[in-house]
Write a protein that binds this DNA or RNA. Structure first.
Lengths: 128, 128
DNA sequence: CATTTATCTGCAAGATTTCGCAGATATGCA
DNA sequence: TGCATATCTGCGAAATCTTGCAGATAAATG
């Protein structure tokens, strides 16, 4: 019977890892492939040390994996379908905001931007 | 240009609301219909005051909606698809854990339990 | 080796969440 | 009205997260 509790516990733990603006963006950016820390820091406009800390957390939870290329550390999503799943979440948000025209526009524009980012990429796995 | 940032900000905010074991379970339980605070408190085995606080937060973020029946406050998901989306998240977790047989079993059992919960119900209004 | 580049780690202050509890409301009923 | 039930709210302590910064590693290069 604690199956439900255990599941909720594990799921909430992962959600907590994702639930940070920087980390959501990292997942978004990594949807298109792999990037090194410096590139991500520039994309998000935050200090590289911070990106590194985010990545350490995501790595500890096996959301991303690391490969090396010389002195650069390349990161990629452990499960590309995670990005697709997040995108589905945005669609739900967008629908929820249907009574608020202004924010709905933001969702729509942002979601399309995000969706397009990975459109022209060979993805390996698909959600569901 | 800050479309991406705004989107990430909003999404992470909602994720933060969901990212708590109790609240994940509440969403799970509400998948089958509406429940009052006392019923949820018993299902989760936590004080009613705490459930009330969780619901206040989820209500503020429009994840749930409230109706009244006498002195009871009935809650239901503002967007039932949210529960389905979370379930997809569990499936991703399960896949991620494929190298860890023990925890994979938990995911599988729990996910099925959860998925079944909403399978057999037209269901509205239930008293305990 | 010394230097530069790229990234990581440790730490402490500040901000945010969580949790229990006490008391406030609100409804229904005798 | 008085009382029980059902839920909400405010508050403070404890736990957790975030962030910047200083210093540690590690790889390539002169």
């Amino acid at each position: 019977m604690p199956c439900r509790s255990i599941l909720a516990q594990e799921l909430s733990e992962i959600l907590k890892v994702i639930a940070h603006p920087d980390r959501v963006r990292l997942i978004e950016e990594l949807k298109t492939g792999e990037l090194d820390v410096t590139a991500m820091a520039e994309l998000l406009d935050v200090p590289a040390a911070r990106v590194s800390q985010h990545l350490a957390l995501m790595r500890a939870h096996r959301l991303v994996e690391e490969t090396r290329d010389g002195r650069r550390h390349l990161y990629h999503l452990a499960q590309p379908e995670l990005a697709d799943w997040l995108l589905d979440g945005v669609a739900i948000l967008e629908h929820r905001a249907s009574n608020d025209v202004a924010s709905k526009k933001i969702y729509e524009a942002g979601r399309k931007l995000w969706a397009e980012a990975g459109a022209d990429k060979p993805q390996i796995g698909k959600a569901q």
